[in-house]
């Protein structure tokens, strides 16, 4: 009979293998799967108190994050789990703690109230409370796409021209919901060299939404007639900047030039408490095979030129007009506040 530990190791290994083979479809799928993984781990693992559990979560979380450093969602989910443990512990421990007290603040420095929990008390009720909380969180994740798309009618008006880039499930759901009541036109930038835009255009056409496909180089030319840009993103950084598919920065700058509102659909689990400095491309970007840009068939040429095929773009917060998350619309300058509610400050650095 396999011991409990090796069983947990087994689950983790299956997950990391799936991750390496890119079996997850999109970041929501990844978020759901990683929370389900955490649910299993926390349920099966033996722990005496919250401190032990949190240390274990941190350790496993670190390993998971290292498997795929550019997937910020994994780190975010680890932090959410830690936050859930902290919240439930604080709640059961006399129910005295409110969220704001956990924050580091000037007030705390002044009053010198040591609210540092040691998390060592053994509370039997803690485990069921945590499991229930994780269950609620899973429901929230599952419904996040719908929660965003129900806001569509507030943002898309009749006969508007919307521009988007690449393929985002959230954006597609958003457009589809709006199309139930309003007629509008969508211009899709194809997003070379992966051409995810082709798929979006096809899907839109199938949903009977008028779609126009353009090459990325035509973004600026088309922008003059666009009423709104609506895009998805890979993650939202702590300063309100975006880590989004390559080409988004071009799109954002063109939108700024013509003063077109630049709206980003991003569910809460994409909010990442890390800061990125735009100069640090090595730590931020990921590079795909150059095959799509310059095919290996061009033997002679391939050996003579450098080919880069970056996946991400950093978009500074001043180019974003609005974030639409599952809880509502927010300005980029408000992201810091959402982050302080989502994660505990001590967990930001895993």
């Amino acid at each position: 009979m396999p011991s409990l530990e090796s069983e947990i190791d087994g689950i983790i290994e299956t997950f990391t293998n799936n991750l390496k083979q890119r079996k997850f479809k999109g970041s929501r799928d990844l978020a759901l799967n990683s929370v389900q993984l955490w649910k299993k781990i926390i349920g099966q693992m033996k722990w005496q108190n919250a401190r032990e559990l949190m240390d274990a979560i941190k350790q496993i979380g670190k390993d998971l994050a290292e498997t795929s450093p550019s997937e910020t969602v994994i780190g975010n989910m680890t932090r959410r789990m830690l936050k859930i443990v902290r919240d439930e512990y604080a709640m059961l421990q006399k129910g005295k703690q409110e969220d704001s007290d956990l924050q580091e603040s000037l007030q705390k420095i002044l009053t010198a109230d040591e609210v540092d929990f040691d998390y060592i008390e053994n509370i039997p009720l803690l485990k069921p409370a945590i499991m229930e909380h994780i269950g609620e969180f899973l429901t929230e994740l599952e419904s996040s796409e719908i929660d965003i798309s129900v806001q569509a009618l507030e943002h898309i008006h009749a006969n508007e021209i919307i521009m988007t880039i690449g393929y985002s499930k959230t954006v597609f759901a958003f457009l589809k919901t709006a199309a139930k009541d309003r007629a509008f036109q969508v211009i899709v930038a194809e997003c070379a060299p992966f051409y995810h835009g082709h798929k979006l255009a096809a899907d839109l056409a199938e949903a009977r939404i008028s779609a126009t496909l353009i090459p990325d180089s035509a973004i600026f030319a088309m922008m003059a007639r666009v009423n709104k840009v609506i895009i998805g993103t890979h993650s939202v950084m702590a300063n309100g900047g975006l880590k989004a598919v390559c080409g988004t920065h071009t799109l954002a700058l063109a939108a700024k030039h013509y003063s077109v509102p630049f709206v980003v659909c991003a569910p809460m689990f994409k909010l990442c408490p890390e800061y990125v400095c735009s100069l640090d491309q090595d730590g931020f970007n990921q590079f795909a095979s150059p095959e799509e840009v310059l095919s290996n068939d061009e033997g002679m040429l391939v050996s003579r030129v450098n080919v880069y095929n970056p996946i991400f773009d950093y978009v500074p917060p001043e180019l974003v007009t609005l974030f639409i998350s599952n809880t509502g619309g927010n300005a980029p300058s408000y992201i810091y506040r959402l982050l302080s509610e989502l994660y505990h400050p001590l967990d930001v650095l895993l």
Partner: peptide, 14 residues
């Protein structure tokens, strides 16, 4: 690390 808009939040809290 704070954005400038977070400063007033801190002062209000205090």
């Amino acid at each position: 690390i704070l954005t400038p808009s977070a400063v007033s939040d801190e002062l209000i809290k205090l």
